[in-house]
Amino acid sequence: MDIATFPLGALQTNCYVLSNGREAVVVDPGGDPAPLLQHLEAEGLSLTAILNTHLHFDHTAGNKALAEATGAPILANDADGYLLDTWLGRGGEMGLPPLDLYEWTNLEPGETTFAGAPCTVFHTPGHSPGSLTFYFPDAGAAFVGDLIFYRSIGRTDFPGGDIEALKRSVREHVFTLPPETRLLSGHGPETTVADERNHNPFLGGF
């Protein structure tokens, strides 16, 4: 399996294209999807789903354009649906224009398949109520959104944030993954389960 990273949008949110054979999924298209479309075309990939770890605007700004260009469904968790009625989900703050509304389908946690590869979807609230983590064992990687970063964790001071829920999500669904699992976050460099278990100053003692 191949994973390509594209920092997109005003906040340079990490967007990922995970491909398996000729099928691909995109995780968190946070800006103009033109680079994603160029990559898909150059590699001869068919996009089968657009996965949102959560519905903050800097992770979803490219949702509508990418879905319209490819026909791929947008998947997210219902618990974040209320965000689309707020600036956190719609944008319109920090000098940025509001996003066009997009249609999306609820995705519940559990075992599923994306791009022909097994995936475990974890409900990992804390940064937002509906935050999801996508673990692809064949790729040895988990897409964690803004739950956990290299040596840091996601903000919990936004409406819907909960520091204790975030720590519980990490403890139960991230730190239980194989130690060598790559953690692909919404911002900054990638890290691993073992690295964060041993060195993350916000999550000591896990």
Results as ranks from 00 to 15, higher is better:
175 F>W: 05
98 P>R: 12
124 T>V: 09
56 H>C: 12
14 N>R: 04
94 M>V: 07
129 P>H: 13
177 L>Y: 01
119 C>Y: 03
176 T>D: 00
108 E>S: 14
13 T>V: 06
196 E>S: 13
106 N>K: 12
102 Y>H: 06
40 L>R: 13
107 L>H: 06
43 E>M: 14
64 K>F: 11
110 G>Y: 05
173 H>P: 02
66 L>S: 11
147 L>Y: 00
131 S>H: 08
114 F>K: 02
88 L>C: 02
136 F>P: 00
87 W>H: 08
94 M>R: 12
44 G>R: 12
59 H>I: 10
111 E>Y: 05
122 F>R: 02
42 A>K: 15
45 L>K: 06
122 F>S: 03
126 G>A: 11
52 N>E: 13
10 A>F: 09
122 F>Q: 03
118 P>G: 07
30 G>F: 03
67 A>E: 05
25 V>I: 15
76 A>N: 11
21 G>W: 07
19 S>I: 09
200 N>L: 06
108 E>F: 11
102 Y>D: 04
186 G>I: 01
89 G>I: 08
189 P>H: 10
3 I>W: 03
55 L>N: 02
94 M>H: 11
118 P>R: 10
100 D>A: 10
157 D>P: 08
19 S>F: 10
41 E>T: 14
159 P>M: 09
167 K>R: 12
202 F>E: 00
89 G>Y: 06
25 V>R: 09
206 F>A: 15
32 D>G: 09
138 D>T: 08
39 H>T: 09
23 E>L: 12
196 E>N: 15
174 V>T: 01
179 P>Q: 08
103 E>W: 13
70 T>K: 13
48 T>V: 10
46 S>V: 15
177 L>S: 01
57 F>I: 05
187 H>G: 13
150 Y>A: 14
43 E>Y: 15
65 A>E: 14
35 P>V: 15
165 A>S: 14
169 S>I: 00
178 P>S: 00
26 V>T: 06
99 L>P: 02
120 T>K: 08
9 G>C: 10
76 A>M: 13
72 A>P: 08
140 G>S: 04
72 A>G: 10
108 E>V: 12
182 R>A: 12
116 G>T: 04
192 T>Q: 05
45 L>Y: 06
66 L>C: 11
150 Y>T: 13
10 A>P: 09
81 G>E: 11
71 G>F: 07
57 F>A: 10
81 G>D: 13
19 S>N: 14
36 L>W: 04
166 L>K: 02
34 A>K: 14
5 T>Y: 01
122 F>W: 07
186 G>R: 01
198 N>F: 14
96 L>R: 10
49 A>I: 04
31 G>F: 01
154 G>E: 03
144 V>R: 00
128 S>R: 03
